[in-house]
Design a protein around this nucleic acid. Sequence first.
RNA 1: GCCGGGGUGGCGAAAUUGGCGAGACGCGACGGACUUAAAAUCCGUUGGGAGGCAACUCCCAUGUGGGUUCGAUUCCCACCCCCGGCACCA
Length: 826
Amino acid sequence: MTAPVEPIGYDPSAVESRWRQRWAERGTHQADLAHGARPFYALMMFPYPSAEGLHVGNLFAFTGCDIYARFQRLQGHTVFEPLGYDAFGIHSENFALKVGVHPMELIPRNIANFRRQLDRAGLMVDWTHSVDTTDPDYYKWTQWVFLQLYEQGLAYKKAAAVNWCPSCKTVLANEQVEGGACERCGTMVEQRFLEQWFFRISGFAERLLGNLETLDWSETTKQAQRNWIGRSEGARLRFRVLDPLADAGSSAVSVTSEVTTGGAEIEVFTTRPDTIFGATYLVLAPEHPLVHAVTTADERAAVEAYRAAAAKQDLITRKTSKEKTGVFTGAYAANPANGELIPIWIADYVLMEYGTGAIMAVPGHDERDFEFATKFGLPIVRVVAGEGETARTPFDGAPFVGEGVLVNSEEFDGLPVAEAIRAISDWLESRRAGMAVVNYRLHDWCISRQRYWGPPIPIIYCDACGTVPVPAEQLPVVLPNIPDFKPDDSGVSPLARHEEWYRVPCPRCGAKARRETDVSDTFLDSAWYFLRYPSVPRADVAFDRELTKRWLPVTTYIGGNEHAVLHLLYARFITMVLHDQGLLDFEEPFTKFRAHGLIIREGAKMSKSKGNVVNPDDYIDQWGADTFRTYLMFLGPFEEGGDFRDAGISGVKRFLDRLWASVRDHAAGGTADTEVMRKLHATIKKVGEDVPALSYNTAIAAMMEYMNTLRKGERTPHRAEVEPLVVLVAPFAPHIAEELWEMLGHRSSVFDAPWPAYDPALLASDTFELVVQFNGKTRGTLTVAKGIAQADALSALRGDAALGRFLTGEPKKVIFVPGRLLNLVL
RNA sequence: GCCGGGGUGGCGAAAUUGGCGAGACGCGACGGACUUAAAAUCCGUUGGGAGGCAACUCCCAUGUGGGUUCGAUUCCCACCCCCGGCACCA
């Protein structure tokens, strides 16, 4: 008799809508935040609700997180799995401008559509604790966070360069500049200086770096943060500027023993103080404050022209064009090591925002300096000699940047580089010409945006009282609904056009005052949202102390590595600040972080222009959410991503069809098959190990393998053989699991059932397959007793007809790996 | 250029404290059962090559070239290609 599967029985859309409704009615997904045992906070990165709808990449990430969370629930944890919307920011605003719909109208519409799509995906999300960053009830607290930083002196204002499009007359984000031109109109972008708000994250660099060691994060993410923080050890060295008049007429580089200074000193940062004898010129960034003072009359016109050109150039082009340019200032400085006079130049390859904005150029041992010196005919001196080189070895078109010993460096000659760095640093320090310092690439965080679609920065300017923070009880500073949210040529936020909004009485003295019209960076919205989720209904505090204590830090955070540096670093920073203020008990928000991979489509990146974007709705309509979820996870390793191919999805559907049929047709009486049960327990073990390791693809493969065993030879499975499988499948395909669980007679949710235990005794066997090799080639296996000794294995081999024939003589060598293999070298 | 992650069948992929015959699981393909037929379902075969009626036997295969080892997808050296991020950071 055959028992053909009749998939008619399994109707995904009916099953899924039934369980969606039941979950909502029963509140299955709402964690008891106040009392639930063993709290587990499963966090996923909240999406930006675009007009295009949910991207399959979002769903891939959410499903991966959901499976992890559901698994933890089956392990007996009270799992809190919230989700919200990151809806402020320039993306929304630009899109709103493009389609001519106000963001206050557009965003709620997008959110509604997202919510509809998310609901269909079968996520265990507790929607009673959602956030929307554009909701005044949320951004009230974003503004409050700003005030916490302000009070600690960690928020300050300074002039900084921004990208400016003279045609669109607006500030552009870096990603809106393509090859130096505005992405919208193609006009060349300029830089402008505007007063902006900054957060002093640079002061936390060492802590942010050091704490990484304590975090259980994807190594790639940690490494990205280390690179971004960019710690480098070096020295600050002081160069005296010489009075240009005293030096007038002398050759560019001459040894002068007694020169009096004009008083000015230029400080440089270098990681190679050992090469100071090879420093043949200095370079200042064009914006360096000393440029004006040191420039001689003869050179002033050229210097000013160069500075003006540099100021006009946009930030992107300047950083990407590698062609060296620069001009001589006419001034000289004394090399503190040997007193030699070296010229001072300005060039845009030196960046004002790194180090001191000035360098000592050592063209013999630095590629950029070498290129510059070659172009402008500046002297190149060798001070490090590599293997087989001497002080006189010429440079062959390139600087020498390798390891070696010092030359042309007076008493330091012969020292290896590593020792020389220390020796020369100490020497210069003793002569008060420098000091060892640690420098970081990490810059302060500019949070100002001269835009509309963000939370207004809660600051008021009063002529009498100066900068006054908005008192906490007056929050939120509500973003007004203005029709003309488009940026204009003023270079300030559109909010500045609305006097009725920005004119307010000073909170301190009551005099007429003005609001800050910049809004804050969207990264600030997302830097603290995980603190808000558990406390969402609370209107009186940003986060409740007790709930926070219970639920944070986040147990596991899963998200994209595109946020490896900015979002994850800012969230760590804000948490640290709130911790220092005594508002949080922990200073690291995410105990464990795992980065998921990216989904591609048939080997290519998905994009609208290629027309190969997967719309989740279509697939869920056709296959059901359970099949879609499981298929997404089956594509490849979760942490590496996968290649979406329509062809493969049917295999997963077939698996669920067979699962359905197995439960429907199972035999209640009789006994379970021993071999099948052995396989079942092996599968329970495998899935229980793979899921927490995010090896979803292999967990699914293991369940499929078990399904093959279960139905081998068209047998009718026993109840004991299928019931545990329903629980194993549940995290992946929650709707069908609930349905089948009920079909098996259970009244409560499968997610309130315990995860099945496997019986190690059942897995243990008295015998094992001993691999038999001859000359390293596997020739077969012998079934032998566990713990068999070499001698017994050999006699078993001699007694085996098939394998014994390979044993043509006495083996020269016998390699016996107990419990594994026997290799005979003949 | 620098830092990560990868190169394994027709395809997505398994397996790396070096060793249970590389390729689990799935797709596709091929053959068969059922059917008037098709779909669906079920069963079987499927890395390449050579030999044999056959059970089988042999050779070649994890990006390329070397090396270590009884034994290498796994370790070491050199190189090539793909993906992601950073990029004049002194």
